[in-house]
Design a protein around this nucleic acid. Structure first.
Length: 290
DNA sequence: CTGCAGGGGTAAA
DNA sequence: TTTACCCCTGCA
C-alpha cells in the first residue's frame, strides 16, 4: 500500500470520458479539474490527461504500472480493432468517431457481478449511490490525501449482511438477489476462480445465469466488462436495442425486435468484436431518442 | 403540491 | 409471453 505515480505517453484510444462514462463502471467520479478518481481492488487512483499524456497517481497495492496495464487493458491494440470495425459499414464508422477513446476495463469479477445485478431496471446515479453505500458500510477504508475511500467488499465481508440491511440501503427488490448470489459464491455453488479458466464463453454464461439476479443482459455485461473479457458477447439493453433497430432492423414497434434477432445481426456484422462494437454503438444512443 | 411514468432486467406467473 | 417490482427523479 503505497502512494505511487506514473505517466503514460503515446497511449492510443484513451479518453477519460469515453472510458468512465460509457456505463461499464460505476466507481469513477469526475472531479472539478476534469480528472477522475476511482477505487478498484485495493487501489485508489486519480487520472488526468495533460496534453497527450496520462498521469495516474494514488494509493496502489502493487506496482502501479502493472496494475494500470491490466485494469485499462493497455496491451490490447484498439486502433487495430477500430480499423477492423470501421470496415463493417458506415454506421459503425460513425459510431467509432463518437466514442473513439474507449477502452474496456478489466474489472474484478465479483464486483462486476454484484454491480450489474444492482443495475437491473435501475438508473446510473442510483446504481452509483448504492454501490458507494455498500462499499462504505462493508468494504475496507483506504486513506489518501486526507480522504477516506472504501474498497468494494469481498464475499466474506458480506457474509452476514441480511436482506433487510440491503433493503435499508435502498437496494429495493434487488436485496434478495444480492444476498442469494453472495451466499452461492461463498458456498462455491459457482467457483469464480474456475470460470476464469474456462475458455468456453457459452458455458461460462450458462453458469452465470444460475445466479440470482443474473439474466441474459447482466450475464453479458459481466462477461464483457470483467476480467472474463469475452469480447464476442453483445449485451442488449434498451438503448442498444433502439440503436440496432434504428440502424439495421427498422421494425416500427421496437418491442417486437427479439433478442435473438439482434444477437444474430451483431454476430454476423461484428463477429468476435461484437462487445466492443456494442460500446461504440452506445454512443449513438442520443442520436436516436425515441 | 400531488401523481405518475420510466429507468442499461429479472423472476415468477 | 406478460407482469410486478423498490426507489428515485423529472415533469405534468
Amino acid at each position: 500500500m503505497t502512494e505511487q505515480k506514473i505517466e503514460l505517453q503515446k497511449i492510443d484510444s484513451f479518453e477519460l470520458k469515453d472510458i468512465f462514462e460509457c456505463g461499464q463502471c460505476f466507481r469513477w467520479n469526475r472531479q472539478e479539474d476534469g480528472s477522475y478518481t476511482g477505487v478498484f481492488g485495493e487501489n485508489v487512483l486519480n487520472i488526468k490527461k495533460e496534453n497527450k499524456n496520462i498521469i495516474i497517481e494514488g494509493i496502489c497495492k502493487n506496482d502501479i504500472r502493472k496494475t494500470v496495464e491490466e485494469y485499462f487493458d493497455l496491451k490490447r491494440d484498439y486502433s487495430d480493432i477500430k480499423q477492423t470495425l470501421e470496415k463493417v459499414d458506415i454506421n459503425m464508422k460513425n459510431s467509432i468517431t463518437l466514442g473513439q477513446g474507449i477502452r474496456i476495463l478489466n474489472q474484478d469479477l465479483w464486483e462486476t457481478i454484484l454491480s450489474f445485478i444492482i443495475s437491473a431496471n435501475n438508473n446510473i446515479p442510483r446504481i452509483k449511490k448504492i454501490i458507494e453505500k455498500i462499499a462504505k458500510n462493508y468494504g475496507s477504508p483506504i486513506k489518501w490525501k486526507q480522504m477516506l475511500y472504501y474498497t468494494f467488499p469481498t464475499p466474506e465481508q458480506l457474509k452476514d449482511v441480511t436482506i433487510k440491511e440491503y433493503r435499508d440501503l435502498g437496494l429495493g427488490f434487488r436485496d434478495k438477489r444480492i444476498y442469494e448470489t453472495t451466499q452461492n459464491i461463498l458456498d462455491k455453488k459457482l467457483d469464480l476462480e474456475e470460470i476464469q479458466k474456462n475458455p468456453n464463453t457459452l458455458e461460462v454464461k450458462q453458469q452465470l445465469l444460475t445466479l440470482s439476479g443474473v439474466g441474459p443482459k447482466v450475464a453479458d455485461c459481466i462477461l464483457l466488462f470483467s476480467t472474463l473479457k469475452r469480447l464476442e458477447v453483445f449485451p442488449i439493453d434498451v438503448w442498444v436495442r433502439r440503436v440496432m433497430n434504428h440502424l439495421y432492423i427498422k421494425q416500427p414497434d421496437e418491442k417486437k425486435v427479439s433478442r435473438k434477432q439482434i444477437e444474430q445481426i451483431a454476430n454476423e456484422k461484428f463477429g468476435n468484436l461484437a462487445g466492443i462494437a456494442q460500446q461504440y454503438l452506445f454512443y449513438n444512443r442520443k442520436a436516436h431518442l425515441k
